[in-house]
């Protein structure tokens, strides 16, 4: 029982093949096997959102996804969001608007907001709250994060204009 399985995943554009136990969570696989340290691990039951990554473009909890379930899929972690040396406009907005203090939760927020703003250039306040309510921050009180989202919307609109 629980023999290792071979999986093939693309992470931030690079293909990987690995042997994993079925019980290995995708979060732990990305962090410990592939050394993507930006994938943080918090509550490990889907509530805190810090482990959020993109799987086939969708923001999902990597603590509620088994590494074996990622076989054949495309993953993007926070390390894959920025463009070479330049931060992504969402990351830049977090810095400028004090969207983080300790920074532990930030990768999950950025990924979740990335998905939101990719699909929806002008989200309503309700849509923004639905997404950021699914990520737990215990430093900022969320006001800075809401400002960062609004600022990121403007930055992205300016970039695509």
């Amino acid at each position: 029982m629980s023999d290792k399985k071979t999986i093939r995943v693309t992470v931030n554009g690079t293909a990987h093949e690995a042997q994993v136990e079925p019980r290995t969570l995708l979060a732990d696989f990305l962090r410990q096997e592939l050394h993507f340290g930006g994938v943080h691990v918090g509550c490990e039951h889907g509530v805190c959102g810090v482990c959020t990554i993109l799987m086939d473009g969708k923001a999902v909890r990597s603590c509620l996804t088994l590494a074996v379930q990622a076989d054949g899929h495309e993953i993007v972690t926070i390390e894959g969001i920025a463009n070479d040396a330049e931060l992504h406009p969402i990351q830049q907005a977090f810095i400028e608007e004090h969207g983080l203090q300790c920074g532990f939760c930030t990768p999950g927020f950025v990924i979740a907001i990335y998905e939101l703003l990719r699909d929806n250039k002008e989200p309503t306040e309700e849509q923004i709250m639905d997404v950021i309510g699914g990520e737990i921050c215990r430093c900022t009180g969320y006001e800075g994060i809401r400002k960062a989202v609004r600022s990121a919307i403007k930055k992205l609109q300016a970039a695509s204009a």
């Binding site: 889907g46 959020t52 969708k58 923001a59 999902v60 509620l64 979740a112 639905d130 997404v131 699914g134």
Partner: peptide, 9 residues
């Protein structure tokens, strides 16, 4: 139901 990050799966 939860949030988009959960509803995605």
């Amino acid at each position: 139901v939860a949030h988009p990050q959960i509803r995605n799966r």
